[in-house]
Computed example of a mutant assay.
Amino acid sequence: MQSPDLGEDPLALDRQVCFALSVASRNVISLYRPLLAPMNLTHPQYLVMLALWERSPRSVTDLCDVLHADAATLSPLLKRLESVGYVLRTRSRSDERRLEVALTEEGARLRDEAEKIPYKIVETLGVELSELEELHVALTKVISASRRALDTR
C-alpha cells in the first residue's frame, strides 16, 4: 500500500484531524451548555437522555454500547440523573446482575423542551443543514474506522 501524501509538513497543526475534531467538539458542546442549563443537564447527561428518549427502559450495558462509553463513566451520570428525578435505576427481575434505567414521568416530559435544542444549534451555527448532515456521515465513518482500529490493537 502506498503512503498518502500528507504535504510538506505532516505535523502542521492546522492539518491535524485530531486538532479539528477537538476544537469543533469543544466549541459545539459549549453552544449546548446554555440550552441545557435550564433543564439542569450537562452535555453528557443530555446524551444519556437522548438514548433513553429513543427507548426506555434500557440496561446499563445497552446504554454503554449505544453511547460508546464504559460503565465507570456512565455510573455517575446515571446517579445524578436519578437524583434530579429524571431516571430510575432498578435491578432486572430476570437477572439481578443487570441494572435497568428507565425514564421517570418528569424525565419523559423533559423531551418536549429538549426537542427545541437541535433547531437552536443549527440556527446558531449558521451552517447549512445539508453540510451538517454530510459532516455527520463523515464523522460516523471516522468513529467506525477508529473503533475497528482500536479493536484490533
Rank of each mutant, 00 (worst) to 15 (best):
A145L: 13
S146W: 11
G107H: 07
P38G: 08
L31A: 04
D9Q: 06
Y32Q: 08
P44D: 14
R15C: 06
G107S: 08
E82Y: 00
L74N: 09
T90G: 01
H68N: 14
D14E: 13
V17H: 02
N40L: 11
I29D: 08
V122N: 01
K79F: 00
V66N: 06
S25H: 10
P118F: 00
M39C: 11
A108N: 12
D95I: 04
A114L: 00
D112G: 07
Q16M: 12
S22Y: 08
R80V: 00
M39N: 07
Y86F: 12
L11I: 03
L88M: 03
L21Q: 07
P4M: 07
A149Y: 13
V48M: 07
S94H: 14
Q16W: 02
T42L: 02
S144W: 12
T42D: 12
D95H: 12
V127S: 01
R109Q: 15
R80N: 13
P76A: 01
L6A: 09
D62N: 07
A114W: 00
L63R: 03
V66W: 03
E123T: 05
N40D: 15
V48P: 05
V137C: 01
G107F: 02
L125H: 01
V87S: 02
A12Q: 11
L31R: 15
V17Y: 04
L35C: 05
V60K: 09
Y32V: 04
V84F: 06
P38F: 08
Q16C: 08
C64N: 13
E106V: 06
P44V: 07
T42E: 15
C18K: 10
P4V: 05
D70E: 13
A145W: 09
L67S: 02
G7H: 13
S92C: 11
H43E: 12
L67M: 13
S3N: 13
P34A: 09
T90W: 00
S94E: 15
T152K: 15
Y46H: 14
S92N: 12
Y46R: 11
L31C: 05
Q45H: 06
W53A: 05
T90H: 06
E131K: 11
M1K: 14
D14F: 07
A149G: 08
E115K: 04
L78G: 02
R97I: 02
Q16E: 11
L150Q: 15
L132C: 00
D65M: 06
H136R: 12
L63F: 02
V84Y: 06
S83L: 02
T124F: 00
H43Y: 14
